[in-house]
Amino acid sequence: MSTHMEVMQLVLLRESLRKQLDEYELLKSIYSMPGEFQTDNSRLFDDIQEFLRGTRLSVDEKLDFRIKIQMSENVKVELSVMLGQLYPTHESPIIMIRTDSLNKHQEMRIKQAIENFIETEVDKSEPYMYQVILWLQDNFDDIITIENQTTNSVKDENEAETVQREWIWSHHIYSKIKRQDINKLCKNHQLNGFMWPGKPGVICIEGPSESVREVVKIIKSWQWKKLKIIKTETSDANDLKFLRFNGFEEIMTGEDCDGENVTMDNGRFFKYLENHQSSYMKMELFGFQ
């Protein structure tokens, strides 16, 4: 028998998802030109509808989409959005910025400005992504101007860009939703590395330092039983031998980690490290060579 709390959580989830679908359809109708509105999983919309009708027991993924917005004559911004299942009232969206004409510092400044706007000025009782987009269009030039002034005053123009690799250990990685979110985050940021689910779980992320730090910050903000940054490695961006992985991948299949108490296959994992010039991480991660 369901408890009162479980019933209330289900009501909240259904109401949140219903609002998300309404906003999804609104944005899709507004940004209807070819290439403006995109999603990698159009089937999820139908899955959520089935869940709301009661013909599906659960929804294991989060609604996500990308919108391309012309900010000025020379600048087009791609807004990549991942909605938490309890958005808008109890979870904030994960928002990523990508452009062809701005640098990473400017993209990060836009992202931070959006997050501050959501935190301080948005009414979260209703979906607000369209409000965020309108606000960004109105304030885009000011955000970029402030970023340029700040960058010029604190950063040496000759300062070298760096690449970074983060090794993360988790007590376990089972959740399908977390695994999907990590995959999407890394791929949307065009980062390399891998995730090895199970107990324990290991995540390795490499790429431009600013992007790596941003993704790790998001991952650390989630609820974990235990999560530790084991090792951080950095190098000059011109070091062509630093990056070891080709794209980001989840090593085990989804079936491998269904349920709990799935332990790591040490032999297979150590062989994977060896194949990617990372055997030294056996000591760092597990205390033996």
Rank of each mutant, 00 (worst) to 15 (best):
I97T: 08
I97Y: 06
R98F: 03
R98W: 04
R98N: 11
R98C: 02
T99Y: 07
T99K: 08
S101M: 14
S101T: 15
L102K: 02
N103P: 01
H105I: 13
Q106P: 04
Q106T: 01
Q106I: 05
Q106D: 06
E107V: 03
M108H: 14
R109T: 05
R109W: 07
I110S: 02
K111R: 08
Q112P: 02
A113T: 04
A113F: 00
I114E: 06
I114M: 05
I118C: 12
T120P: 13
E121H: 15
V122Y: 12
D123Y: 13
D123P: 05
D123R: 10
K124A: 12
K124R: 14
S125T: 03
S125L: 09
E126L: 06
P127W: 02
P127A: 09
Y128A: 02
M129V: 06
Y130P: 06
Y130H: 15
V132D: 02
I133L: 08
W135R: 03
L136A: 10
L136Q: 04
F140E: 02
F140N: 03
D142E: 15
D142L: 12
D142W: 11
I143Q: 04
I144D: 08
T145A: 12
T145Y: 13
I146R: 10
I146K: 15
E147S: 13
E147Q: 09
N148L: 10
T150D: 04
T150H: 07
S153F: 08
V154S: 12
K155M: 11
N158P: 01
E159N: 07
E159S: 11
T162Q: 03
T162E: 06
T162S: 02
V163R: 01
